[in-house]
Amino acid sequence: MIKVSDLTVKLGGQTILNDIELEIPHGHWTCLVGPNGAGKTTFLKALLGVREYSGSLQDNGVEVFRNHKRNVAFVPQHPEIPRGMTVAEYVALGRSKIEGWGNESAESRSFIEEVLIQTQLYGMHQRHVSQLSGGEMQRALIARALAQEPQLILLDEPTSALDLHHQISVLNNIEILKSRGVTVISTMHDITLAAMYAERIVVMHDGKVLLDGAASDVIHSTELRTAFDNRISVYTLDSGRPVIVAAKDEFEN
């Protein structure tokens, strides 16, 4: 269990995260939702250890999130794309944490190949990452995270700007990670997709947690509507699956 208590992050005099209290179970997929500026990405960065924070972020009672040895994979929304680096090299960077930089063993290389096949990047592995489309690049990022064999993976908007086909393919790859016992924490704008894949949903608004609970409960909650200023409508399909769409403003009706 990752226990977050009194987590506060201030940046340039502005409070980005305010007294967050949260418990995140291991081996599950927890998704942070909320409008832009709610503090979702900052929360991920505090978990990664790159943001100064006050309060505590503990894993099984130990303060861990400034510990370099911890194997946490991070999939950013806007990655820096190294010019001239091939997909195979890019994915191989994921092995650095486990094997040390530049020390890929023969087993590692065959593991990287498996990952490339799994993420449907095999065949384009000699291409430069700068030549990949948005969906392919996202798969390359996931492939690098798979190669990292992390205990915890943090994903910042893994499906934004992807077409439906690529969204499903990326989310399925994340599910593979989860099936291996990896704890998944992501942010996601598409709440319908979040409800489909994540077990737990955390609703954030203005640097605070409004609600945290099982996906099915959160979706129908008033807190979710509050976070989005009542501008969302929730429908339930015949299959029982919830669908969240933006509601039109009153005056437009």
């Binding site: 960065k45 991070f74 806007h78 990655p79 190294p82 960077l93 650095s96 944490k97 040390g100």
Partner: peptide, 21 residues
């Protein structure tokens, strides 16, 4: 440090997650 320098081709968050300060 040459092998680690490849990490600087990524964003700071990414290189941190791969074990680099």
């Amino acid at each position: 440090i040459s092998k680690k320098l490849d990490g600087l081709l990524l964003s700071d968050e990414e290189s941190f997650s791969l074990g680099i300060d």
